[in-house]
Amino acid sequence: MNPMIHIVDDDQSFRTAVGRLLSASGYRVTLYGSGEELLARVHELVPGCCVLLDLDMPGLNGLALQDRLSQQAPMLPIVFLSGHADIKASVQAMKAGAEDFIEKPLETGILLEAIARSLQRAATRQDEYDRNHAARTRLASLTPREVEVLRLLVRGTLNKQIAYALGTSERTIKAHRHNLIEKMGARNLAEAVSIAERYGVVAAAEQSSQP
């Protein structure tokens, strides 16, 4: 299915024209006359879409809308459109995570390129997010005992030593180790340790275990 582009501009004629251009270029398009309209339908925004946002709008302006969207739909790629080269506003927009900042009147090539790039980047980000999300979910499924074992394993502690430290048998430790590798979707212990390090679970776990 073609990506959906959400166009927010208070100028009806302008948004219609841009909408026509994008739909002729193969995108699906939804038009909004104001930021408020978009917010009202924010739940309909699904990954894989892009927002074209006019910077200067009466009521909720572009930057304010970006702020609201970052809370309600953080992964949404936003391309700003602006009638004048307002450096201050563009810097603020980019800092707040905008994908691009295009000046009106729009160069069709630049616009399409910007949309394509932002969709691409959004997709990559989405993948990564998905992966991270999965890893975090798996990490979260570990029991406290398994987290303790994992923390010690990351430090290179031997099963025996762990068993001694935790006051249990080496066999029990091995069972924990097997379970946690499996829960984390790792192929072996090295991969599990790597995941644990990347997501900071170890440190977090270590901190939380500190008195």
Partner: peptide
């Protein structure tokens, strides 16, 4: 500045419409 912006709206719309038409 704001007048230029205002003027850009119809000019931008014209350009986009024309591009859309040529694609269509």
């Amino acid at each position: 500045a704001s007048i230029a912006h205002e003027l850009n709206q119809p000019l931008g719309a014209i350009r986009s419409n024309a591009e859309a038409a040529s694609i269509v």
